[in-house]
Design a protein around this nucleic acid. Structure first.
Lengths: 214, 214
DNA sequence: CGCTGGATTGAGTCCGGTCAAGCCTTGTGG
DNA sequence: CCACAAGGCTTGACCGGACTCAATCCAGCG
């Protein structure tokens, strides 16, 4: 595969990472364990150290929307006001640094913290707006192709791991599990990607994938 | 109608409003005139003084997604990094205060500006996440009912104005203009709302509207 | 090796999109 | 002040992409 420049933005400002490392309480969460709950008081900030996390929002009738997936270096828990709008759960066994917001402010200095939080929040807003475009105006096959493309870019390597289930993908993309599965089958039949087990794939025709993502 | 407490959050922190009033260049935009363009350098901050604004994002094939609608007191132009992800246009003839970000920082002091921007950005992120839930997991009738409900709450008064076209509503909700029109007709047939012309309505059965918004 | 739960596949349905025809405001000019 | 145009909106008929329901498949694990 040709070299491409890494599209990943800095996961979080260095100052933030530094402070979190010093003040954060390292905590382990098992697969599917809840890290924080919807409506819970949002006084804590979380940084993923290893593993992966999803943020989800539940409607009373069981419909679920996933807000995003977070990996090592990503900050969560700041996307909300006083109370969380989303809950967060570990996708796989994960380690997370947890810190009180007030403690962070004391150590980092208000200005530094504010600037770091602003940068992270703004990046989060960009992600959300991209997500809005996808949910509002893309077809099922564009959604799935775009999802795999993003994952492959983020992963960097040849073989890309899918840490989430088909249900998670569906709930992120506003589709059903069956539709996601069909689109994956199509992509594989078209020799755009090749799956090696259910949670691992390789991009075979990068151009085609980008085109399908539109 | 019974008194309800006003669900509107402060449109923008007072410090921000104050500074914008002093430093902002008051500019008029005609209906449908562009305020800033997608991909344009994002050095300016905008505050709506009167009228209404939409932010939109265009796909190459013409599909359009509206990110949000903004009214008097709302800040725009901060939802992005170095370059705007969305363009902004006036929904109706509007007045907007325009200020350089650097000028604001100088006057307000970095800390104050950062804190104000953080608060606004976070509120914007909340809106975006709500929008994601709506686009990903709600049906057409829930989307339209929810949209009218939000407008009515924001408007406060008895008669609620719709400053946007059906096309704008459709592009905000991820629907077509025909579907929006049909849902509005249904709501009116069910005597949930009553239209007085095409751009003005009254909520007749508040409970039913909230229930349909789910 | 057999169990188990996630994933795939198929058949049929339905919600929302598409295409097309008309309606109704709103605004303009005589 | 009315006539008429024009564009936004509504309505109808039909279509199709994504959903639903249901039957299997199969990878991972004890």
């Amino acid at each position: 595969m040709a070299l491409r420049d890494d599209p990943r933005p800095e996961a979080a400002p260095t100052a933030m990472t530094e402070v979190m490392r010093r003040l954060g309480q390292r905590t382990r969460y098992a697969k599917d364990q809840e890290i924080f709950a919807q409506e819970e008081d949002a006084d804590l900030v979380y940084m993923v150290v290893s593993g992966a996390v999803r943020t989800t929002r539940l409607l009373s009738d069981g419909r679920r929307q996933i807000g995003g997936f977070y990996y090592a270096g990503d900050l969560i828990g700041l996307e909300t006001g006083p109370a969380h709008r989303y809950s967060a759960e570990a996708l796989v066994d994960s380690e997370v640094l947890v810190a009180r917001r007030s403690a962070l402010a004391a150590l980092a200095g208000d200005g530094v913290l504010d600037r770091a939080l602003l940068a992270t929040t703004r990046r989060e807003l960009d992600r959300a707006q991209e997500h809005i475009l996808v949910l509002g105006r893309k077809t099922a096959s564009e959604k799935v192709a775009g999802f795999l493309k993003d994952l492959a870019q983020r992963g960097g390597g040849e073989r890309v791991a899918l840490p989430m289930s088909r249900q998670d993908m569906a709930d992120y993309l506003g589709l059903t599990i069956e539709t996601v599965s069909r689109m994956l089958t199509h992509l594989q039949c078209a020799a755009v990607v090749e799956f090696d087990g259910r949670r691992r794939f390789t991009v075979k025709r990068w151009g085609a994938l980008e085109q399908m993502a539109a």
